[in-house]
């Protein structure tokens, strides 16, 4: 557990006045407030930090304790005891750092908890109690093949099992909202919502752009030259293709409706684009070299 420099967090001098601390806190709170920085974990972390710093520095007793012990905070309790014994005043003022009953708080660093126990006052920030329950955020990691078909999945969110329907065609980074699956509201307020963000990894040979899929298909030189039939993979099976004689390297073919399912449009699919990649034979035998030379001569004459 490391010492936290609260002055540095609020970007103020150690001699800063109460007003300067308040001003610095408010400025940083405006910058990192979670309602102004949605889905920004870094801002959320900074906001917690500045709130904690404010909790200590805007509260005279807390600030004094913090200033007195500073980096020696781990010995604070011992110092405190010996000081009390020396002074023997017993005025009962030392009990002020107990746990505080602040509704939205509680998320403090180990350093803070060990020095102050919990939130000690409502500090400088007024935080109104939530009416609507807290929204929950979850991230679901899936493979591309998982989102090819609509399926159900059971998730455990805050110890509760929730069965959700995952529609085929969901995109990487897409977020869906499930109403009423968040925390309980207060004072008759509605429940919060559950937001699920999907991360879709692709370990297939197909590349996806929305509903279209792209892949390359190896084509041997002779089929490219003379034409013929080949079998190519689609996402969920195989397809027979007729290759025209004289097919060039990089030729694209479009297979309509063989792409990825369209989100929430059952039975609708994008297209599959195949690019032919012609394989040039290597390690030619003497006979092959002879024949290719003959072909070359024929071409050039």
């Amino acid at each position: 557990m490391a010492f936290i420099d609260y002055y540095k967090i609020l970007e103020v001098d150690k001699k800063a006045t109460e007003a300067e601390i308040k001003k610095a806190y408010r400025k940083l709170a405006r910058k990192y407030h979670p309602d102004l920085n949605p889905n920004d974990k870094e801002a959320e972390r900074k906001f917690k930090e500045i709130n904690e710093a404010n909790e200590v520095l805007s509260h005279a007793e807390n600030r004094k304790k913090y200033d007195d012990y500073g980096e020696n905070w781990q010995h604070a309790e011992e110092f405190e005891k010996s000081k009390q014994q020396r002074q023997y005043q017993g005025n009962g003022q030392q009990g002020g750092f107990g746990g505080g009953g602040f509704s939205g708080g509680g998320d403090f660093s180990d350093f803070f908890e060990s020095m102050f126990g919990g939130r000690t006052s409502s500090g400088g920030g007024r935080r109104s109690a939530q009416f609507k329950g807290q929204d929950f955020n979850a991230e679901l990691h899936l493979e591309l093949k998982d989102v090819y078909t609509t399926h159900k999945r059971t998730l455990t969110i805050n110890g509760k099992n929730i069965r959700i329907n995952i529609p085929a065609g969901i995109e990487n980074g897409q977020q869906i909202k499930i109403s009423g699956m968040g925390g309980e509201g207060s004072g008759g307020g509605p429940k919060g919502d559950l937001y699920i963000t999907f991360t879709v990894a692709n370990h297939t040979k197909f590349k996806r752009d929305k509903n279209n899929l792209y892949a390359t298909v190896d084509l041997d030189l002779y089929t490219a030259l003379l034409g013929g039939e080949i079998t190519a993979d689609t996402f969920d099976g195989k397809v027979k293709l007729t290759v025209k004689p004289g097919t060039q390297n990089g030729t694209k073919v479009k297979l309509k409706g063989k792409g990825f399912p369209v989100y929430k449009k059952e039975g609708e699919f994008g297209d599959l684009y195949l690019t032919y990649q012609i394989q040039i034979p290597i390690n030619l035998s003497e006979k092959e070299k002879e024949l290719f030379t003959e072909l070359a001569t024929l071409r050039n004459s």
């Binding site: 408010r26 709170a29 407030h33 007024r126 109104s128 009416f131 609507k132 919502d193």
Partner: peptide
């Protein structure tokens, strides 16, 4: 009730950030 989430944000901005 669908608007409560947004309203809550507005209240926070108003009360906490002036």
């Amino acid at each position: 009730s669908d608007a409560v989430h947004e309203i809550e944000k507005m209240v926070h901005m108003h009360q906490e950030l002036d």
